[in-house]
Simulated scan of single mutants.
Amino acid sequence: MKKINIALDGHAGGGKSTTAKILAKKLAYIYVDSGAMYRAITLFVIENDVDLNNTEAVENALRSIEIDFKLNEQNQHNDVFLNGKNVEDKIRKMEVTARVSEVSAIKEVREFLVKKQQEIGLKKGVVMDGRDIGTVVFPEAELKVFMTASIEARAQRRLMEMKAKGQEVNLEEIKQNLESRDHQDSTRKESPLRKAEDAIDIDTSDLTIEEQVEKILNLALQIIN
């Protein structure tokens, strides 16, 4: 059976990551959370007080960064490791969420991660989610999906995710953060969030995760077969 690359793009909180994880498992593909990679760099920036307006400082920081994904035996998900340390919980906190779009907009950061992501996809059999996967990282991906959802649906999902991790946040704060990230992601100069011309739109506002997965799985199997 031939293998393909699957690109899932869309706004923050649209269910991309959860859907991509399950989809990859069903296809026995590699799952790559590109957003987690940007979050890891954002965490490094925060912890090391990197001056984002200083190109040399950013480039020096990138040379000091190694990002890995390792299987967590307890939940069977890949955790993110930054320079050998598990930072899966840290990168999901609000202080990182609040700055990740700012860090992601930096040209040197995007070039650094896009190169790593493209290397992963060379052998095919990859499900990757993010903002520029279908347009920049995998422009030749056999299946591209652009996932959309209302701001209300996305905020509710993010609230549930964060509460499950014991984080105290309110719905209005999440909604404002999502709206801010939508604007930053869509208007940034480097690889802005946009739908690839050949991507398939899926509105997930009223879909369960299972329904999202089923829709995309059927699309993938049509191509594979």
Rank of each mutant, 00 (worst) to 15 (best):
A220K: 00
V96P: 11
E140Y: 00
L207W: 06
D9C: 02
R99F: 13
D132F: 01
I106Q: 03
D51Q: 02
T19P: 12
S191P: 04
K165F: 04
I22W: 07
L217M: 07
N78I: 09
G35Q: 09
K26F: 01
F112S: 01
Q156I: 15
I4E: 05
L62G: 05
A153T: 07
L82V: 12
K2N: 10
I106L: 14
E197Y: 14
G121T: 08
D182A: 02
T19G: 04
G35Y: 03
R154A: 06
I6T: 08
A20L: 11
E73N: 01
D203A: 07
T97I: 14
V58L: 06
P139F: 10
T135H: 06
G84C: 05
T187A: 06
A220L: 11
G13I: 04
V100Y: 01
E102F: 12
T18K: 05
N86K: 13
V96D: 12
D68Q: 13
M1E: 15
A20V: 15
D9G: 01
M94K: 14
A20F: 08
S64P: 05
E47R: 15
T19W: 09
I202F: 08
E152A: 02
V80D: 02
A98E: 13
A36L: 10
D201Q: 01
A7S: 04
D89R: 14
V109I: 11
A20W: 14
I200T: 09
N86A: 13
S150D: 15
I65F: 02
V32Y: 13
E66A: 05
V169A: 08
R92L: 07
F44Y: 10
V45T: 10
A7Y: 02
